[in-house]
């Protein structure tokens, strides 16, 4: 089961693109609200742009509630978007189910966070992988050879040892490798990995991330890596995008964003990460965070910049005008949605 597509498709070719992607979840209306014309909604994702290219990893970093997992599910077309566009190879796509969805899933596959929940406990690994291969017509003439190739590709060797096992007989790391193998069974062009290693033991994580990187290179895949751990984004991803309260706040190549963060929220994230070189006990509650350390409600998000209630550098403009993407200028493609970088309207 070798992909013939990678031989032809150039590295860097755009596979999947999100343009102005928006998702609002309606809030359940109570009886008295039925008489009101207002419809409350959770503004989970607003105006997200991202581009996935072959052979590249884009990391989407954010805390819980930032909207990053929702972005992944929107890109996987698991539920409909409220606004914006998703383009597969430049063509706008909306798939609701059935054959269309299967066709989409053959190109865009998802790997979930919980290796315990994403495999069916009553079926063997053989069943899981066979199903993936058969649904996407990749089984070929020799099913056993195809299965062995899949397991070898995720370093679960010898394949015979794993094929007839049930998920509970495997470790977390092995289960996640099976989930990756299942995704590869569709021979996809893009992989959406939603916190693929967060639930694995620390010493196993790197093995799985290195595997994903290896697959990206050999199969020329486009990978979206969603995580709350910005250090792993630096290690694994080419490009890093930071999300806060449903909006994107910063983007650029991983090294630049993590070493010279521009947006005050990114700086807060990086300062908060554990730092073994800081002296023992020298932890001060961050004076920089003027809020209570928590993200805002997404039902009534703050006006203007959603980070302004917590931002140490907030200006009057920040509470009224939603910031646009502004170039930082220190590295190509490094931008932040922050009025601090508005050279044109400089105070």
């Amino acid at each position: 089961m070798t992909s013939t597509q990678d031989a032809k498709a150039p590295a860097g070719e755009v596979v999947l693109e999100a343009i102005g992607l928006t998702k609002h979840f309606p809030v359940r209306r109570r009886l008295r609200d039925l008489f009101s014309k207002e419809h409350d909604a959770v503004h989970a994702v607003d105006d997200v742009h991202l581009t996935l290219r072959r052979g590249q990893v884009v990391a989407l970093v954010g805390e819980s509630g930032s909207g990053k997992s929702t972005v992944a599910r929107l890109l996987a077309q698991l539920y409909p978007r409220t606004g914006g566009d998703i383009q597969l190879h430049g063509r706008s796509t909306t798939v609701k189910g059935g054959r269309n969805f299967r066709g989409y899933a053959a190109r865009v596959q998802m790997i979930f966070q919980d290796p315990f929940a994403s495999l069916n406990p009553v079926h063997t690994i053989r069943y899981h992988l066979t199903r993936a291969l058969k649904i996407h017509h990749n089984a070929g003439d020799d099913l056993d050879a195809a299965l062995a190739a899949l397991l070898t590709r995720v370093s679960l060797t010898p394949p015979e040892r794993y094929l007839d096992k049930f998920p509970h007989e495997l470790s977390g790391g092995q289960r996640q490798r099976v989930a990756i193998a299942r995704a590869l069974g569709a021979d996809p062009e893009a992989l959406l990995a939603d916190e693929p290693v967060s639930m694995l033991d620390v010493s196993i994580r790197l093995g799985v991330l290195n595997l994903l990187r290896d697959l990206k290179e050999r199969l020329n895949l486009a990978i979206l890596y969603i995580t709350h751990d910005i250090a792993s984004a630096r290690y694994f991803a080419d490009e890093t995008l930071v999300m806060y309260a449903g909006r994107m706040v910063e983007g650029g190549d991983s090294e630049t964003v993590t070493q010279t963060p521009a947006h005050p929220y990114t700086r807060l994230l990086i300062d908060s990460a554990p730092d073994p070189d800081r002296l023992t006990g020298d932890i001060d509650p961050l004076e920089e965070d003027r809020g209570n350390g928590e993200p805002p409600s997404l039902i009534r998000p703050p006006s203007g910049c959603r980070f302004h209630p917590r931002c140490p550098a907030a200006m009057p403009r920040c509470s009224t005008d939603l910031p646009v993407r502004l170039e930082i200028g220190d590295a190509p493609g490094h931008w932040a949605a922050c009025w601090l970088y508005d050279k044109a309207g400089a105070q």
């Binding site: 470790s171 790391g173 092995q174 033991d201 620390v202 010493s203 196993i204 994580r205 790197l206 093995g207 290195n210 910005i230 250090a231 792993s232 630096r234 290690y235 694994f236 090294e255 993590t258 070493q259 990086i270 990460a273 730092d275 070189d277």
Partner: peptide, 24 residues
């Protein structure tokens, strides 16, 4: 040592890491 080197560094130079092979 293996456990310490399983944490990608956010600061300082970017190193190639492997974690620990095998499973707990």
């Amino acid at each position: 040592k293996g456990l310490l080197s399983s944490f990608p560094a956010l600061r300082g130079p970017r190193r190639e890491l492997t974690g620990i092979p095998g499973s707990p």
